[in-house]
Simulated scan of single mutants.
Amino acid sequence: MDPQQLAALTDRARRLAVPGARRILGLAGAPGAGKSTLAARLVDRLDGLAALVPMDGFHLAGAELRRLGRSDRKGAPDTFDAAGYAALLARLRAAEPGTTVYAPAFDRALEEPVAGSIPVAPDVPLVVTEGNYLLHDAGPWASVRALLDEVWFLEPDEHLRVHRLIERHVRFGKDRPHAERWVRESDEANARLVATGRHRADLVVPVP
């Protein structure tokens, strides 16, 4: 992303960060679209005005996915605690004075969620959240959009997105044939579903 585009997005996010209020900015997009990278860069540039709470902390644990028979579809909408994510967003919007809210994170090395990992102080005016299904309108996901003040949909070059996604899986332990098969059979099915929510975004962000 070029510096001018990043500066413009930072300025737009900064307008949401009004002291004394609590707003939530969502970054949506397909697996490998660059959501976590952009979210982290925005939070860093906002100098303490924002906290990052990824949707991925609401992955179901591996043991539960195995119990449900969903391990081979990890990353699909029904492999997350969507209702729990929505409940956290509602709690974050309330921002009770003097109360720090703790959000879960996702450890990619362990491939597991880790509870209570991300503190969100009550005086932080903006929460940035990112994930695949912020614009999904089925089941418990349907309540998420109304809890977000703005949602940006990231739209990268598809060839580069798939390449980056394969490389990420390899970096975190999958052998290359397994990574390529997982992207082809799982991640890309999820990407097609994510794309159906594009029209519900406030802004579409081209990502190089």
Rank of each mutant, 00 (worst) to 15 (best):
V120N: 01
P122S: 15
W141M: 09
A87C: 10
A138Q: 15
L148I: 11
F106H: 10
T100S: 04
N132T: 08
A86L: 14
E111T: 09
V120D: 00
L88M: 08
E130S: 04
H136R: 11
Y85V: 01
V101R: 10
Y133W: 14
T99K: 13
P119G: 05
D137S: 13
A83T: 01
L134W: 05
L147M: 01
D137Q: 14
L89C: 12
L147Q: 07
E96P: 05
L88I: 01
L135G: 02
L88E: 03
L110Y: 05
H136I: 05
P119E: 06
A82K: 09
S143M: 09
A105C: 06
D123W: 04
L135K: 00
E111G: 11
D123P: 03
E112D: 09
A142D: 02
G98P: 11
I118Y: 04
D123L: 07
G84L: 08
A121E: 15
A142P: 03
V144P: 05
A87F: 13
Y133K: 07
V101Q: 11
R108F: 07
A90S: 15
T100E: 01
F106G: 12
L126N: 00
D123R: 09
Y102W: 15
A121I: 14
A142Y: 01
Y102V: 02
A103D: 10
A86R: 15
L126Q: 00
P140F: 07
V124G: 13
G116R: 12
T99C: 13
G116V: 13
G98W: 10
L92K: 04
A142C: 05
E112I: 06
H136C: 11
R91N: 09
P125D: 05
D107K: 08
G84K: 12
V101S: 10
A146I: 04
L135T: 01
G98T: 14
A83G: 07
A90N: 13
L92M: 01
L126M: 00
A94G: 06
A109N: 08
D149F: 12
A94R: 15
V127H: 06
L88V: 01
I118N: 00
A90H: 15
V128C: 11
Y85Q: 04
L110G: 04
L89I: 11
D107H: 05
P122T: 08
D107W: 00
D123A: 13
V114D: 01
A115Y: 02
L135V: 05
D149Q: 06
A86P: 14
Y133H: 09
S117H: 14
L148Q: 08
V128D: 03
R91F: 02
E150N: 04
D149H: 14
A115W: 03
D137Y: 08
D137W: 10
W141E: 07
A115T: 01
T100A: 04
A90T: 15
A95G: 04
G84P: 08
V127K: 03
H136E: 14
A82L: 09
E112K: 13
D149L: 11
G139A: 12
P125K: 01
A90G: 15
R108V: 11
A90P: 09
L92W: 02
L134Y: 02
A86F: 14
G139C: 04
A121G: 12
G84H: 07
W141C: 09
A82P: 11
A146K: 06
P113F: 12
L135R: 03
A90W: 12
S117C: 10
A95W: 03
E112H: 07
T129R: 08
V127N: 04
E130A: 06
P119S: 02
E130R: 02
A142F: 06
